[in-house]
Design a protein around this nucleic acid. Structure first.
Lengths: 205, 205
DNA sequence: GTGTTTACATTCGTATATGTATGTATAAAC
DNA sequence: GTTTATACATACATATACGAATGTAAACAC
């Protein structure tokens, strides 16, 4: 085939990432070959090797599509907007993430891939480090917001912001994992918002 | 080589499972070949194909070594022994799991493999179902124990046992995931017991 | 003590995956 | 308008993995 314009090339690059996501989801990352992705994208392996050096690079490109927005949204909800009750801010952030998963097929699939369709071996240790870093950031911002809540007397006096931050974070990590694994949806997927509200109600004064 | 006795054969079977665990941990389940396992176990692929039909069967054999004891211990701690304060029972169960992970290299590695070195594709959907079932069981038993606590007036009146059970379960799932991912150990591994106690202190009246 | 089965090792055929090298038509640069 | 770099497709060489088939020597049943 003939050469494409720069815009066309960018389209094929995007379509490769989309195809990779679709195949990763079904076959898992390790078992997916370049040929699988190529077929799904309607191109040849040559096209893929032109845009990416290997599978890991495709994975990373896919991952950035969800992680960068997550951090942005977190900053917006927890740090920037100070008009709300801090506890409501936290609840909004958590519920917002769930709603994002419900509304965006792309986000949902990428989370699923990262959580149960990917093996974090040495080759992916960079990814694992970044995940841990992101979690640290979340904890920090949750802690900051719980501190605001404490200052405003919204917490029970015995509760420490740092403890609450970790507890909420671990609760939410657990929820996300079960959300993803809960294929029929009746155990966690449909109840996620309720569970978040219940969690927050355990904390409120 | 010559034929072994039945006891010797059982030993090689065990050594294959051990070898698989070691290789799974380093290379991930998908990327591990029968040859890798064979080399690690000091046998040939022929031996492996004699004892197991495929890799999934080895994985299942490995997994049973930790899941059956988990359920037993859960029953012992939460259901059988009624001499203790129910909230202490729950704390003991959670802390006991962490201590088991600390003390048993084998358990630790198998958890790590199941959580971040394995891709849950269709082939492993049975495993995923079993995990969900185990989680349902945990939730149920936690709920039962929290109900005992409520009857004894140990909970805040506004707290419902069912909600607490899910909250604790999700907290613990999150904790286990971060425990496994926390390679340097400073964020979650060393603090796990403290975090559990903090979580329980949020619940107590 | 002989026959049979067991517990593997060895060998073989086939399939599949990877990365690179090369070919090529065209968009873009000049 | 010519040249050059781009955006792929195609072809090739190499490596690896699987499962089955076959071989084999010793344990076990009798």
């Amino acid at each position: 085939m003939a050469r494409k314009t720069k815009e066309d090339a960018e389209l094929t690059r995007k379509s490769i990432i989309i195809a990779a996501r679709e195949v990763f989801l079904i076959r898992g990352v390790s078992r997916t070959t370049m040929e699988h992705i190529a077929t799904q994208a309607g191109v040849t392996r040559g096209a893929i090797y032109w845009h990416f050096t290997n599978k890991t690079e495709i994975f990373q490109a896919m991952r950035e599509q969800v992680f960068l927005p997550l951090i942005d949204r977190m900053d917006d909800t927890l740090l920037v907007d100070n008009s709300q009750n801090p506890l409501v801010q936290i609840e909004n952030f958590l519920c917002g993430t769930i709603q994002l998963l419900n509304n965006s097929l792309e986000t949902r699939q990428i989370y699923e891939i990262m959580m149960i369709k990917c093996e974090y071996v040495i080759e992916f240790s960079v990814v694992l480090q970044e995940i841990l870093l992101t979690c640290s950031g979340i904890e920090e911002k949750l802690c900051f917001t719980y501190e605001k809540a404490k200052e405003q007397g919204l917490l029970q006096p015995s509760h420490e912001p740092a403890q609450l931050a970790i507890d909420t974070q671990l609760f939410f990590i657990g929820l996300l994992h079960m959300w993803v694994k809960d294929s029929d949806g009746n155990h966690f997927r449909n109840r996620a918002i309720k569970l978040i509200k219940a969690h927050m109600s355990l904390i409120i004064r």
